[in-house]
Simulated scan of single mutants.
Amino acid sequence: MAWRACAVVLSLMSLVCGGLQARADPPPDTLTPGVLRIGTYFVNPPFEYIQDGARVGFEVDLMKEVAERLRLKPRFVDTRWETILQQMRDGRYDCIVGGITVTPAREKILAWSRPYMTTTLSIIVDTAKSPDIHGIDDLKDASVGVQAATTDYDVATRMRAEGRIVGVKVYPFARIKDAMSDLRAGRITAVMKVYPVARWFVRQTPGLRIVAQVPDAPQPLGIGFSKATPDLVTAVDRALAAIKRDGTYAELARKWDVP
């Protein structure tokens, strides 16, 4: 009789588990069924970059985790910052990432996930070239390097208009290393960059240091979508919430040393 009771219990468990699986949400609709097509650019460490020929970074791992929880296969498509927002608007991808700050202007053209990180803009200087710069108030005679079409650029041009810095030198997004080279050579006084990227470059380059965070300029980073895919946005938001809730996000943050 005992074996019959066990058989009944196992049968009931199988029916319950099968029913739960049957009721599980199907993968969300995407451009290619079963695939999450992700536009990005691998020139933005520690978010996404190339290391020893491999595509790596915090957001690479984060999006892989999101895709897995949605039962989708991630497919990263390399593009450029200067075109990625319009390409997403044109429906070239299911979503885009790349340390992208969610701004009111960008919310007008794309839908966005809830921010998975809110960070700051950092000021980097060369300690040998600028030993007397210790904060924002020391930048009045400074020229600051920024990347084109970024919130860094917007903030730096506003600071120039307010007389808080003298000049702004703009670099193509993929040439941030040129800004660091110019900083080391003394051709510019400082570089402004979102904190995780600034921190990565400072750790990679002896002599550079972060002297300040720009006040009143929070940087909420999110995943961008077409406004025509609200169900996908909702599904990704649920996955991000679960990733944070179960500790996976914290593990990835420790791995890539991001806040």
Rank of each mutant, 00 (worst) to 15 (best):
P218I: 14
V168T: 08
D90T: 07
I223L: 14
Y195T: 15
S11N: 11
Y153N: 10
L20R: 08
K193V: 11
G98M: 10
D141V: 00
T189V: 08
L31V: 11
R89P: 00
R89Q: 15
V102Q: 11
P74A: 12
W3M: 12
N44H: 15
A148N: 10
T248S: 13
G57I: 09
Q21Y: 14
R245C: 04
V258N: 00
A253L: 07
L20P: 00
A142N: 02
P172A: 11
P115Q: 04
E48T: 11
Q87D: 11
V202G: 03
D141W: 01
I176H: 05
D231M: 06
G18C: 15
L31Q: 12
P33S: 03
V194P: 04
E48R: 01
D29R: 10
R71E: 13
I133W: 02
P218W: 06
K244Y: 08
T101W: 00
P218E: 10
D231W: 02
M192K: 03
V214K: 03
P215Y: 10
I96D: 01
S130F: 11
A128T: 12
G222F: 08
K73R: 11
P33L: 06
A174C: 05
D78Q: 12
Q147N: 07
L110E: 03
W3E: 15
V258L: 02
P45D: 08
A228S: 14
A241W: 03
P45W: 04
R37G: 01
A161M: 11
D257S: 14
I109N: 00
P46G: 06
P259L: 06
G222S: 11
R209S: 14
G91F: 13
V191Q: 03
I165F: 00
D237S: 11
S113M: 07
Q87S: 10
P74R: 09
I123M: 13
V197D: 06
T234A: 14
L183K: 10
L15Q: 07
D137I: 00
L240T: 09
L72E: 05
R92I: 04
T103P: 06
G163K: 05
Y41I: 04
Y116M: 13
P26V: 14
F201R: 02
Y41C: 02
D29W: 02
V191R: 00
D178C: 06
L15F: 04
P74S: 12
D231V: 09
T83R: 09
D52N: 14
A179V: 15
E162F: 07
G34I: 11
V194W: 00
Y171I: 13
Q51R: 11
V9N: 03
Y41M: 12
P33H: 01
P115E: 04
K64H: 07
P45I: 10
D132P: 01
G98C: 08
H134V: 09
W3K: 12
Y41A: 06
R187I: 07
I109L: 05
D52Y: 06
I123G: 01
I210M: 14
D237A: 12
G207A: 15
I123C: 02
L221R: 01
I176A: 08
T150V: 04
Y41S: 09
M13H: 08
A190K: 03
D94T: 07
V66A: 03
R199T: 14
S113W: 03
V155H: 00
T189M: 03
Q204M: 12
R209E: 15
K129W: 05
I176F: 09
R209N: 10
T120W: 10
D137W: 03
T151F: 09
Q51I: 04
